[in-house]
Nucleic acid binder design. Structure first.
Length: 278
DNA sequence: CGATCTACCTGATGGC
DNA sequence: TGCCATCAGGTAGATC
């Protein structure tokens, strides 16, 4: 569920509300979420008593620094949520990890589908333990680049635009929703080849990436009908109200009024406008 | 090496 | 009302 804008929204909230807090106790239910640890105890021992000193985002990963120097790495998968709550608030279903602070409530990790995970690791082991993180591509929000550099990245491979945008080893943080929104913003079809773009189209695509992601962050990310993505306070985002194509099958294109089309790409849904995207 | 599919899970939704 | 199939923001691993 959560892509770069949703994870960035959470990062900013964690920075305000969790950094500086000390963990008193940790409860873990089941091993799936912390599967990289051999047992619950080895995870709990590394977190209990620790204070969070910083939080950063790498693509769709969150990395919290503990005052032991170790890192708590979190990936939300499809349905993961991080929620601040008072100790007495009713515990939601599928709360797999609950951290109680010495003061001011809890941080809860809730994840019905259990595709997400978290683990603690030393900074110098991070790349061994998480090759995905080591191979992560550029962050389009944190590390702006020139459109000519972007153009070289595009031309140097031969793949469809949507696959390029969603490849975490090339650009980190873009998933199924934002790739569609970016391609609409750029006026390009999802199945155009990376090496077929004119320089004007390259510029439009790069602008689409940066502007779409910034806009989505501004509105706190996208929450779809199932309400799965919510922020640290359980509040939905608002960017879905600004979607041009995603989840808008058969609705009129906001630009040309032609109905939005839903197609399959790599066995996933893709939405686009046949008139505005070429 | 790169491109494509399937598995991992639970829950919501729609057709019959 | 119930049953079954389908679909859902992500990624890794198998298979070609």
């Amino acid at each position: 569920m959560p892509e770069l804008p949703e994870v960035e929204t959470l990062r900013r909230e964690l920075d305000k509300e969790v950094v500086g807090k000390r963990v008193k106790t940790v409860e873990v239910t089941g091993m799936k979420t912390i599967h990289r640890h051999t047992n619950r105890k080895s995870f709990i021992e590394k977190v209990e008593g620790q204070k969070f000193t910083a939080v950063e985002r790498r693509g769709k990963y969150l990395v919290l620094t503990l005052d032991s120097g170790e890192l708590l790495v979190i990936h939300l998968g499809m349905s993961g949520q991080l929620l601040r709550a008072a100790n007495k608030d009713p515990m939601p279903k599928h709360a797999h990890v609950v951290m109680t602070f010495t003061q001011h409530g809890q941080l809860r990790y809730v994840d019905p589908r259990k595709f997400g995970e978290m683990f603690v690791t030393a900074p110098d082991e991070l790349t061994n333990e998480v090759p995905e993180l080591a191979e992560l591509g550029v962050d389009p929000v944190e590390e702006p680049m020139s459109w000519t550099t972007f153009g070289e990245m595009l031309v140097s491979r031969k793949m469809k635009l949507k696959a390029f945008l969603m490849d975490q080893k090339i650009i980190a943080g873009i998933g199924n929703i934002y790739s569609d929104e970016i391609l609409f913003a750029a006026g390009l079809r999802y199945d155009r080849m990376t090496d077929s773009l004119s320089s004007q189209e390259i510029r439009r695509l790069y602008r689409g990436v940066v502007e779409t992601l910034h806009d989505a962050i501004k509105y706190g990310g996208s929450t779809l009908g199932d309400g799965q993505y919510v922020d640290l306070h359980g509040e939905p985002g608002e960017y879905q109200e600004h979607h041009q194509v995603y989840d808008r099958e058969k609705l009129a294109c906001r630009r040309c009024r032609v109905p939005i089309v839903k197609a399959k790409f790599q066995s996933r849904s893709t939405y686009f406008c046949e008139q505005c995207q070429v």
